[in-house]
């Protein structure tokens, strides 16, 4: 039995948040390329950053990969390749714990640094603080799910791969299952809802730098040349006097 509240929480809110996520990024990219940056504070302080930042970033990258697996790949697929439930569980919990721990330690270091170093704190915007709060809540419930459900088994063998994952994939395939989230244990609900909120905030925070991950660097030539005519907003020169021998500029 799905109530109106369930539909609002697990259908309407996700779509609204995702819509804000997508249009927000399009808007930000169109109108605020100059503000699209990591806003690094390494110039002010680097001793704590040296540990905190890689721990957090590599941790969260591993967490992201885990979510791609856990949310993106249906259980039937892993069953089909013969990955048993217990093996999958052990793998997910161990890697998840490790990644989660690295993320939390890294983030704690970074927040400590941000609060105690005057220069870094001075460069912290209100949006940064809001974002840290929401991100912290998301990470807290995420880690709690791994520990509480995966290790301590407090939620009666709740299998998110048959609940949360199906609901999440359904959002993108338009097969809506609000009832699955309504039945899920509270920490899973909280994790999902906080994540949706984070997605809605995302385009308006420094988190946009995630989408500038410069993987292209591995392939591009070292030195970039640019001619004026290629400049943004400029138009090709009009046809005028031409050389007898056609040459390319």
């Amino acid at each position: 039995m799905t109530t109106t509240l369930d539909i609002v929480l697990w259908v309407v809110v996700p779509y609204v948040c995702l819509a804000i996520f997508i249009t927000g990024h399009a808007w930000r990219y169109r109108y605020d390329k100059f503000g699209w940056t990591t806003r690094s504070s390494q110039l002010y302080e680097s001793k704590l950053l040296r540990w905190g930042s890689p721990l957090f970033h590599f941790g969260i990258l591993a967490v992201f990969a885990g979510h791609v697996m856990g949310l993106g790949i249906p259980k039937s697929w892993t069953d089909a390749v013969g990955l048993s439930e217990s093996v999958y569980h052990a793998m997910a919990v161990s890697v998840g714990l490790l990644a989660g721990l690295a993320t939390v330690v890294g983030m704690s270091l970074l927040i400590y640094r941000r609060r105690t170093n005057g220069a870094v704190f001075g460069a912290t915007t209100r949006m940064d603080k809001t974002m840290y709060l929401v991100l912290g809540v998301v990470i807290f419930f995420g880690l709690w799910n791994t520990i509480g459900s995966g290790v301590l088994n407090l939620y009666d063998h709740y299998d998110y791969r048959e609940g949360v994952s199906v609901w999440f994939r359904g959002i993108f395939t338009f097969q809506l299952h609000p009832e699955l989230m309504a039945e899920a244990p509270f920490p899973f609900q909280a994790h999902g809802m906080a994540a949706m909120l984070l997605f809605a905030l995302w385009p308006f925070t420094r988190l946009v730098h995630v989408f500038s991950a410069p993987l292209f660097y591995l392939w591009r030539p070292y030195v970039v040349y640019r001619a004026k005519s290629e400049r943004f907003g400029a138009r090709a020169p009009r046809r005028g006097w031409e050389k007898s021998e056609k040459t390319r500029r």
Binding site: K33, F34, T37, T38, S212, R226, K228
Partner: peptide, 21 residues
């Protein structure tokens, strides 16, 4: 960061820089 093809001046495209430092 690019080198201008016409006169070789090296510039930073402020809209493309992401602050990787």
């Amino acid at each position: 960061i690019y080198k201008r093809a016409e006169d070789g001046i090296v510039l930073v495209d402020q809209d493309k820089c992401r602050g990787w430092r």
